[in-house]
């Protein structure tokens, strides 16, 4: 079982602490939402945990192996990473973009092994993209493009998934669809860490919430334990009503 174990991880840049001694574990079967205000250090934490940024202190281990020591390919076969969506450089075809998910397995767009093609077709159909597979990316809507990115992450067949705001700038229906896809990935035995801004959606979907503010993790636990009006006031400076997993934000403090 693949497990990402982050211990005392700290990141500094230009003398400023971006992440301060963060600790968490990500296991298969978990849907973890990473929450916190803008600039809390969520993306920095995730990048350092993946070995993409050099930590000032602490370690991130994947099955006991330091992620910074793994080759990019080894790491990518264990953790699929969806960074915040940037515009594509070229108007590539949907199928070719999703095929990039097989990059760490040695695939190229025109050269797919049997296993690559199978994973590709499976990811396309799971994300309801089969009918769009020959379309150019610049003809897709924002919601469709978000599904394309999810599909390429799933095509990697990595046991863990880290996604940075996959639902940003999507309408409510597409936010649900994307999170449904992540939930299916988790129920199929994957482990997901998703950076989110919508507290209500996070509480509805995630099995665990990690709360960050000012470079530190303030709380880590199931929604039932950590989702409290006091914590929301502390993290975001908002008033909230919480009933079980149901949360309503009522205003700024």
């Amino acid at each position: 079982m693949t497990e990402l174990c982050v211990k005392d991880l700290s990141v500094t840049a230009h003398g400023k602490s971006l992440v301060d001694r963060a600790n968490f574990v990500l296991k298969p079967g978990e849907f973890v939402a990473l929450l916190g205000p803008n600039g809390a250090g969520k993306t920095s934490l995730v990048r350092a945990a993946l070995g993409l940024a050099r930590p000032a202190f602490g370690t991130a281990r994947l099955d006991g192996e330091d992620t910074a020591r793994l080759s990019p390919g080894q790491r990518a076969r264990q953790i699929a990473y969806l960074p915040q969506v940037r515009p594509l450089a070229w108007p590539s075809r949907v199928r070719d973009i999703v095929a990039l998910g097989r990059f760490s397995h040695g695939a190229a767009a025109g050269r797919l092994s049997h296993a690559d093609a199978e994973a590709l077709d499976h990811a396309l159909s799971a994300c309801d993209l089969t009918h769009l597979s020959q379309r150019r990316a610049d003809t897709l809507s924002g919601g469709e493009l978000a599904r394309v990115h999810c599909a390429r992450a799933f095509a990697a067949k990595a046991p863990l998934l880290v996604a940075d705001e996959p639902t940003a700038a999507l309408d409510p229906r597409h936010q649900f669809r994307i999170l449904d896809l992540v939930r299916r990935f988790v129920s199929d035995g994957g482990g997901a860490l998703v950076i989110m801004h919508d507290v209500a959606l996070a509480a509805r979907y995630a099995s665990r919430l990690i709360w960050m503010k000012d470079a530190r993790i303030l709380a880590d636990g199931p929604p039932g334990e950590t989702l409290t009006p006091a914590l929301l006031e502390d993290i975001y400076g908002v008033r909230a009503q919480v009933r079980g997993d149901d949360v309503t934000l009522t205003g700024a403090v």
Binding site: S71, L88, L100, F103
Partner: peptide
């Protein structure tokens, strides 16, 4: 080394995430 150029279609961050040694 042309395969990595395809990966860069997604941008450098995502290409690194795909397993490209940038």
């Amino acid at each position: 080394t042309r395969r990595g150029l395809s990966a860069l279609t997604l941008g450098e961050e995502a290409a690194s995430g795909l397993g490209l040694d940038l």
